[in-house]
Amino acid sequence: MSIILDHVTYTYSAGTAYEVKALDDVSLKLSDGEFIGIIGHTGSGKSTLIQHLNGLLKATSGAIYFNGQDIYDKDFDLKGLRTRVGMVFQYPEHQLFETTVFEDVKYGPKNQGLSDKEATNRAFDALSAVNFPDEYFDQSPFELSGGQKRRAAIAGVLAMEPDVLILDEPTAGLDPKGQRDLLTLIRRMHKESERTIILVSHSMEDVAEYVDRIIVMDDGKVFLDGTPETVFSHVTELEERGLAVPQVTYLMEELKGRGIPVEGHATTLKSAKEEILRLSRAGALHV
């Protein structure tokens, strides 16, 4: 299972005064089971990029292959692709429309052509997966709290059991606990089902903590692509592009600047702690 982007370029409103090149010659390979984070400042092309992955936007030039098949082929089943590559948009709670939460979650599976019984099973599983309290199953989605609405909306995508799950800033607008819960949930889904997860985020701490690979977008191009350690070693380049590195990485850089022989590029609290303990044991913390 893989998605390959081959020199994809996308231009909004081509040929008018509003012309914007949102993607510029992007080539990427997204493999099975990866947990990928996409970062970039506002307007860098993140959202445009992910909308190509399930064929919602058609590239102006270039090709996209899903499991080796060209998704722009005439006989390619785009609707099928959209249910295999699940997409949770920013503020997904704005897409709720049914009379009850349960019916809303069933919308996706029903569109896949599943029977009512199967759709009910899927909805039940998806709602349990996101820890949605069962007493609210039959409530109107419009009466829920923000966090619960978000869970219901994510369940609506999960219920289609996609192989690839794309989440566009899923934690935006949630309180710290809601954010933690949601990210833990996403990590658990990645570990348990080994599905590919693509997380678009503005929080450097979150991507450093959760993902295995980071893609940095800048001005429609892929600027960096690698593990959190390699990506976050480019501190100045990231800052020039309106981004940052995790707080702990700044701390470790600061220690290095004061002459402490720090090794590697710690990006999470855990790895920073280990490095500091190692230095402490080696007696290297005294300058």
Binding site: L56, R82, M87, F89, H94, Q95, Y107, G108
Partner: peptide, 13 residues
């Protein structure tokens, strides 16, 4: 446009 895309992502036709 956004809502349409979101529902299309859920298999709407």
């Amino acid at each position: 446009d956004k809502i349409m895309k979101a529902q299309m992502a859920r298999g709407a036709d």
